[in-house]
Amino acid sequence: MAITKKDVEHVAKLARLGLSEEEIELFTRQLSAILDFAGSLQKLDTKNILPTSHAIPMKNVLREDKVVTCQNTEDILANAPAEEDHMFRVPRIIE
């Protein structure tokens, strides 16, 4: 399945990836090749096959509702690229 430059631009937008013109060209070619290769899976009959999300099946892994106070909140904030009033600052949001 060939993917177009427009597909690549759309996906880059979904992934919030800024790409250069060359990268868009390159990825259009490379992703097409990879997806072509992956297209071989379509030949396989998987009609009655359940998907495997976890190789080792498990269920109901739960923890008790107990408060555990984190001692390192300041270390978390220390990594903030921009901080103000003990909050993470981001530039203005325009849609």
Binding site: R63, K66, V67, V68, T69, C70, N72, T73, I76, L77, D85, H86, M87, F88
Partner: peptide
């Protein structure tokens, strides 16, 4: 999904963890 308290009204970014 973590042990942080759900209490309201705390100082910003104090009821947080990794």
């Amino acid at each position: 999904f973590c042990g942080c308290p759900t209490k309201f009204g705390a100082k910003p970014n104090t009821n947080i963890c990794p």
